[in-house]
Nucleic acid binder design. Structure first.
Length: 182
DNA sequence: CTATCGATTGTCT
DNA sequence: GACAATCGATAGA
């Protein structure tokens, strides 16, 4: 399997599952995506559920673009847009490149805590709202196909109050770098 | 290990 | 004015 922009023009659930094992870097810093979540248009937990607004307009733009938003007034979270109104949240990365840079940005030494959580991922990779609406093909990003198929675990999404029973959270089976065990 | 709570601000009703 | 796709610190089992 190779990938191009059409990789994202599919059901976000499939994209979220398939994205596990891909390598993601921002300006050379990053690692392997080990945890994702899917958010659909017809999904009460999704920012797009009530229709397009100024904040979520990226979710209604073309697939394979970023949707970056501020959570709880202090944490940035990174998504990749799939079919209109849907997206995949990048929840955790296994750090591989630029470990010392990430440690400085995060102010922690423990490699397991560098990128285990959507807010932590963005802090470690220096992702902010300025990167909202960028194509994933932008030079700032580097997204690399996983070298081989991986075992993917599924579970319920984290931190939401609506539609919390849906198992739209995916992770690399057995990875110690996920934000919570499956 | 789990549970609880405060921080902090953009967004929407 | 209420709430939020989170995090880190702290307290207790």
């Amino acid at each position: 399997m190779t990938w191009d922009a059409s990789f994202f023009a599919r059901n976000a659930i499939d994209v979220a599952s398939d994205l596990v094992g891909f390598e993601l870097q921002v300006s050379g810093v990053g690692g392997v995506i080990v945890e994702t979540e899917a958010y659909l248009h017809n999904d009460a937990a999704s920012h797009s559920f009530a229709g397009a607004t100024k904040r979520n307009q990226s979710m209604f733009g073309p697939p394979a673009y970023s949707y970056v938003y501020l959570s709880y007034g202090l944490h940035w979270c990174l998504n990749f847009v799939c079919l209109p109104g849907s997206a995949v949240l990048v929840r955790a990365i296994e750090p591989k490149c630029g470990l010392e840079i990430m440690r400085q940005r995060r102010a922690v030494d423990d490699i397991r805590k560098l990128c285990a959580g959507p807010g932590r991922v963005c802090q470690a990779l220096a992702i902010t709202g300025e990167m909202n609406g960028l194509p994933v093909t932008d030079p700032a990003f580097r997204l690399v196909l996983r070298p081989a198929p991986v075992d993917v675990a599924a579970g319920t999404r984290i931190g939401i109050t609506k539609a919390s029973d849906l198992t739209w959270r995916f992770g690399l089976k057995g990875s110690p770098f996920v934000s919570r065990k499956f």
